[in-house]
């Protein structure tokens, strides 16, 4: 514990780390395992970074309800509530 606070202090005093701009909400960094942040336009699994948040949210809600057919997204969308999904969609929309 002592060592940890010394490091924290050292980091604060000597290396003011820039506040990490808008931390990704829980789960958001896992999406890029399949939806690459640099995915090519013709990638079978599309890029989500920069996509309109409303579109991502609507797709996730439809995957979860089963209204939109899916191979895997139904199983993934069920792991997130509406609020959690909205946060992810907003964060993804703000990424390049």
């Amino acid at each position: 514990m002592k060592a940890m606070s010394a490091i924290a202090l050292g980091a604060l005093v000597l290396s003011p780390v820039a506040a990490i701009a808008a931390d990704p909400p829980p789960g958001a960094t896992s999406c890029s395992g399949c939806h690459g942040s640099n995915a090519a336009a013709d990638s079978p699994i599309p890029k989500l970074h920069g996509r309109d948040a409303g579109e991502t949210l609507a797709a996730m809600v439809a995957f979860r309800s089963g209204e939109r057919p899916a191979t895997v997204m139904d199983r993934i969308a069920k792991g997130f509530s509406d609020d959690e999904t909205r946060l992810i969609a907003d964060w993804l929309a703000a990424q390049k």
Binding site: I20, P26, G27, C31, C34, V72, I76, G79
Partner: peptide, 17 residues
């Protein structure tokens, strides 16, 4: 990154496929 600045890490959510 959080711990190095003395900040509190957030509760994560992870996916596997």
């Amino acid at each position: 990154a959080k711990l190095l600045t003395g900040a509190k890490p957030q509760e994560p959510r992870l996916i596997n496929t």
